[in-house]
């Protein structure tokens, strides 16, 4: 099995979760309803936890420990999609991103649970239940708000329009795509994307939202290869501010 290919896969999974978990944690204490504040924080914690699980697998391949990997790399070393690094915006944008991202995430976890690479399969099987709740949460909110007031529908629609090119960027293929598919490690981005479209469409159809025309939407690629928006580096600097006071210290 190609080690490089698996490492690449692990990095993109872990980096996505770390960055989105970090972004979502910014909402703690600022949410629209106390209960939602709590739910959103739990999911952010889960995401950070998922990234930790995948960085731990990477360590078994000889990569540095999870703290070093997460807190000391620069933006161009991150394999996360650009979707996850975008600022939170207002709650409609965060919710739409959560909906677009977690639906894809759940499909990835379902597929990875069948991976021929056992350590990944194990982690995915174990954590799938958490993501299931994330998707239930996301879909329930979108269904509810997406068919409520004009104000809410308008907000969600404009966030959806804004986020969609970035969401399509999640499915940017890796150099090792075919290899991962051939060896049964991962079903590949095409497969995830096809299933993702089905599922998000099924939700959107129950609302008054419209999925923008995919033909004319250019995906925002680059993230998987270290090419990021101007938002990622400041996020990383902030995240590592204390850690970098003394990276050798135990905090």
């Amino acid at each position: 099995m190609n080690e490089q290919a698996i490492k690449d896969l692990l990095y993109k999974l872990a980096d996505d979760q770390l960055i989105l978990g970090h972004r979502n944690s910014e909402w703690t204490g600022f949410g629209p309803i106390l209960e939602e504040d709590i739910a959103f924080s739990s999911m952010a914690q889960d995401k950070i936890g998922h990234s930790l699980a995948f960085y731990t697998l990477l360590q078994e391949f000889g990569e540095a420990d999870p703290d070093t990997v997460a807190f000391t790399r620069n933006a161009n070393q991150f394999h996360s999609s650009q979707l996850v690094e975008l600022p939170n915006g207002e709650y409609d944008f965060s919710l739409i991103r959560h909906f677009l991202y977690d639906n894809a995430e759940f499909i990835r976890f379902e597929m990875l649970a069948q991976s021929s690479y056992e350590p990944i399969a194990k982690v995915a099987t174990k954590l799938k239940g958490e993501v299931k709740y994330h998707v239930l949460h996301a879909n329930t909110w979108i269904k509810n708000l997406g068919s409520s007031t004009e104000e809410a529908i308008l907000r969600l629609q404009s966030s959806l329009n804004e986020a969609l090119p970035y969401a399509l960027g999640m499915f940017e293929k890796s150099k090792y795509e075919q290899e991962l598919i051939d060896t049964g490690v991962y079903a590949g981005e095409e497969a995830v994307k096809a299933e993702w479209l089905k599922r998000i469409q099924a939700v959107i159809e129950k609302t008054e939202l419209k999925l923008p025309d995919l033909e004319s939407t250019a995906p925002k690629y680059g993230g998987r290869y270290g090419d990021h928006t101007e938002h990622l580096q400041p996020l990383l600097d902030e995240m590592a501010e204390v850690f970098k006071i003394d990276p050798t210290a135990e905090w």
């Binding site: 703690t28 709590i38 950070i48 995240m239 850690f243 905090w251």
Partner: peptide, 17 residues
């Protein structure tokens, strides 16, 4: 957003939550 390391990051989030 600045808690140092995974252990603190997750716990700080949980504590504030």
């Amino acid at each position: 957003t600045r808690a140092p390391g995974f252990r603190r990051k997750m716990a700080q989030m949980a504590k504030v939550q």
